[in-house]
Design a protein around this nucleic acid. Structure first.
Lengths: 262, 262
DNA sequence: TGTACATCAGTGAACGCGCGTTCACTGATGTAC
DNA sequence: TGTACATCAGTGAACGCGCGTTCACTGATGTAC
């Protein structure tokens, strides 16, 4: 509520004060992220963060109007960080037509990020903070990951970069019920999302979108189970397990066929 | 630490004091569960629970030695409640050979329970409470759900009650890599779990167990996405969506074929 | 380049609050004889 | 059936704590002329 850059600011040189403000804002956020590794978003204490960063608690109010605003900034930061990591991993695959490699790279990057930043992961995908409602600002950054995933899958099907030799893809797996489907209505929002972003050329990508949503859900569930301790005793090598899951999801989605010898 | 029934207690008639103790213990737990619907386990306040139940905060210490002990009791209670609901749903399917119906019934019961008890669900499957380590007591109740799921799937494959006409099941989907597999070692714990309980007759249920674990992860992820608000805007009819997911998972696991007309 | 005023970052004290846990106590319930 | 003692449930005051947020303040930085 105080200052935040005028929308059409003249390109005046940044003043020392502005530079300091940016630096310290970043420091506060970094300290808060560190705390999240051991504390849970609901317990995140503004006073503790202030202490970590070496200022008195009231000073933080020069940077964030309230604890909730700090939480929102953390949410945006974390979503963007994860989104950027995922996008970079996909982009790093040279052969853009090797959708299986891109799939594997993106998903592995997501898990790597989650394991490296468990606090941020819990903030994004764990139980919501009671009494805190994420504002609209966080919606767009939150979509970056799923957009990468959807792009890989839709490009593998029906796109110009088609390399899938097993047919026209996952939608072949649709249960053989025909006619108007309540399920189609149920996921209409997701379908709309895909269309708006030009991620699909087909007329009826319902089954494909649904299957992609399921796969993403499985990835999220697998990481959550690992980080939240539900695989203790069942899965000893989380790396190998995750890799196995990723491969099977790629199979189910008929993504390329990197390692199929037959 | 005080009293809890002697291990080999003589079947003496329950005294009024004992009855009252049981009743009030249950009241405290019920009040705490109610609070969990709006508060998150980390914020659960012993004083608030005491207030709800009409006693002074210190009186709760006659029933639970600490806040952590109360949390543990809640954990066990919730796991058992969910486990019982799942088992009952499976048991209610008359045709024990209709594995698809049992699958659907069990999974639907899980989601129904989660939607009806979102606080308990978050306690069990949300982000763990920082600083709280669930004791051994909670392990066994925690397994009840996955045991039901594993039993349905393994009975559908290789068991006497075989009704799957599409072959010998999900393991046919295994990626065509052969030889010693790090993945097999990774899930050795889960395999052992299945063997110990006599849930599988086959020699190599690796792929089947892995696929079941994936399916359960998908179910958990789907419910979490719904309850934690990650499907807002994408999925409007959560019931229909969940039903669609359940059917597709049943397809993937080659469970019976209840509704296949072709 | 220099001066006068406005803006801003950070301080330290204070507010009111709710928390988990301890403790000495009172009165009711249970048990042994 | 009656008495004497032990056990137990619940009370109310107190402890020390950390929290989010406000406020008047001081000194440094920025801006207009």
């Amino acid at each position: 509520m105080q200052d935040h850059d005028a929308v059409t600011a003249p390109p005046r040189a940044k003043t020392a004060r502005t530079l300091a403000r940016e630096q310290i804002t970043a420091d506060i956020l970094a300290a808060a992220r560190l705390r999240l590794a051991s504390e849970g978003p609901a317990e995140l204490s503004l006073r503790a963060v202030a202490r970590d960063v070496g200022m008195v608690s009231s000073a933080v109010y020069r940077y964030f109007a309230s604890r909730d605003e700090l939480l929102t900034a953390l949410l945006v930061l974390a979503y963007d960080d994860l989104g950027a990591a995922t996008e970079a991993a996909d982009a790093a695959v040279a052969d853009r037509a090797d959708h299986r490699a891109r799939w594997s790279a993106a998903l592995t990057a997501i898990r790597r990020w989650a394991v490296a930043n468990p606090g941020d992961y819990a903030l994004l995908y764990g139980s919501p903070v009671p009494g805190y409602a994420a504002p609209q600002t966080t919606v767009e950054p939150a979509t970056r990951v799923i957009v990468v995933i959807l792009r890989i899958v839709t490009e593998a099907h029906g796109g110009a970069a088609q390399t899938d030799e097993t047919g026209n893809g996952a939608e072949a797996q649709a249960p053989s019920q025909s006619g108007p489907d309540p399920l189609t209505d149920a996921v209409a929002g997701a379908i709309g999302f895909v269309r708006e972003r030009g991620l699909a050329q087909e007329d009826s990508p319902v089954e494909l979108v649904l299957r992609t949503l399921m796969a993403w859900t499985t990835v999220f569930g697998t990481i959550s189970f690992e980080l939240f301790g539900h695989l203790v005793g069942s899965v000893t090598d989380a790396d190998a397990y995750f890799a196995g899951v990723v491969e099977r999801l790629a199979d189910d989605l008929h993504l390329g066929s990197a390692g199929m010898p037959s």
